[in-house]
């Protein structure tokens, strides 16, 4: 199919617009805790399915991104909205003792749980105190 010149211009305009106006971003609330094995990040991302979720490690940063999808009907008019955007994003700077090759992520009922283990040599060891 041939694209008309008009359409090309329109596409370019749209691209420019998306560049100029960054999309509104929602920061998902998180719980972060650490135990002997590593760090666990729990994030609330309601409406996000596995297919629309992106968890990655990039430049020593853990990036969580996702798009929520709502079962909205045709001709629906909004009456009230606490949530104004469908795009979630948040990132955290990781530290060197974490093993980023073994990150484990589970998504269930809109709750994302990410486990980042510590490198073996950084796991705490109990030091026995000998009685002299």
């Amino acid at each position: 199919m041939a694209t008309t010149a008009k359409e090309v211009v329109r596409q370019e305009e749209q691209q420019l617009q998306t560049k100029r106006e960054p999309e509104r971003i929602m920061r998902p609330p998180v719980d972060i805790y650490e135990n002997e094995d590593g760090i666990v990040v729990v994030a609330d991302m309601p409406g996000v399915s596995k297919e629309r979720l992106n968890v990655r490690v990039e430049n020593e940063k853990l990036v969580i991104e996702g798009d929520a999808e709502l079962p909205v009907k045709e001709n629906m008019e909004p009456i009230y909205a606490d949530i104004r955007t469908t795009h979630y994003r948040r990132d955290f700077t990781l530290s060197g003792e974490l093993d980023t090759d073994k990150v484990d992520a589970v998504l269930k009922d809109g709750v994302l749980t990410i486990k980042i283990p510590k490198l073996e040599e950084h796991k705490p060891r109990k030091i026995e105190v000998k009685v002299a």
């Binding site: 309601p46 409406g47 709502l70 909205v72 009907k73 045709e74 001709n75 629906m76 008019e77 909004p78 009456i79 009230y80 909205a81 606490d82 949530i83 809109g110």
Partner: peptide, 14 residues
């Protein structure tokens, strides 16, 4: 979020 159509009122709780 709450949406409305002619047939129904739809409430979405996150």
């Amino acid at each position: 979020n709450i949406g409305s159509t002619d047939e129904s009122v739809d409430v979405y709780l996150f």
